[in-house]
């Protein structure tokens, strides 16, 4: 489902004398449907950078990043937009939403973008919020005022409300209590069971051990190592 070959990443700092910083070279990764691959490596090794390149958020300097049959490294913006709408889900550590939009609508948005009926989409969103133990009293409020853990769960709800065939999970269990962590691990397991290909970053070693089929150390993709 996800196939990465020969991916490199450089940053050119035009406003700092045009310094070129090479952060990754020769990255390769394959994730089959129903498989969960954990990215590991020291902080700063490039786990998030690789994940952002798969998401299309960072431009790859070289290589191929196939998600399904789309090469994210080459695709036109609208190709990536379509990919993100239909195929590729992303649970980031940060919640970026229009202020004042009710949480239920924030969660329903991926479904609405796919053209689902508004009420049906909200019903699914409510079910997902309930599953993640977000108190019902908060559903009509904007998540911008929520605690870190609540925002994280809203993000997770958004990522799992539509059965994306491919998922990117950036620290999905980081600030969760034990009960909610179990819920999220259950969601990940269910996603794998329905055939989703998942790339994850987990600092939580126990969680990593429970859901990841394989681990890939991104330190191997550092330029000096290549």
């Amino acid at each position: 489902m996800i196939r990465i070959e020969g991916v490199a990443k450089t940053f050119t700092l035009h406003n700092q004398g045009g310094a070129v910083i090479e952060v990754m070279r020769g990255a390769a990764l394959r994730v089959a449907a129903g498989e969960c691959v954990g990215l590991v490596g020291a902080s700063g090794a490039g786990k998030s950078t690789l994940m952002r390149m798969i998401w299309g958020n960072y431009l790859a300097a070289a290589g191929r990043i196939m998600v399904g049959d789309v090469d994210v490294a080459q695709a036109a913006p609208r190709g990536i937009i379509a990919l993100r709408r239909e195929t590729l889900g992303y649970v980031s550590q940060f919640l970026r939403v229009v202020p004042r939009v009710p949480t239920v609508d924030v969660v329903a948005e991926p479904l609405l973008a796919l053209g689902h009926d508004e009420e049906a989409a909200r019903a699914q969103a409510r079910a997902m919020l309930a599953r993640l133990n977000i108190p019902q009293t908060l559903w009509a409020l904007s998540p911008t005022t929520f605690s870190g853990g609540e925002q994280q769960r809203v993000n997770i709800a958004r990522g799992f409300v539509h059965p994306f065939p491919a998922l990117l999970l950036d620290e999905p269990t980081a600030s969760l209590d034990a009960a909610n962590r179990e819920v999220v691990l259950g969601l990940i397991a269910a996603a794998k069971a329905r055939g989703a290909a998942i790339v994850g970053i987990f600092h939580d070693e126990d969680a990593r051990a429970r859901v990841c089929d394989r681990l890939v150390d991104v330190t191997a993709f550092a330029p000096q190592a290549a």
């Binding site: 700092l13 035009h14 406003n15 952002r52 958020n57 960072y58 913006p77």
Partner: peptide
């Protein structure tokens, strides 16, 4: 510069965009 909105904002390629974003 043109591109996906979040890509241009998070990984700007042109010096002017980098300045603008920063």
């Amino acid at each position: 510069e043109t591109g996906l909105t979040d890509q241009v904002l998070d990984d700007p390629q042109h010096g002017y965009t980098q300045l603008l974003v920063s």
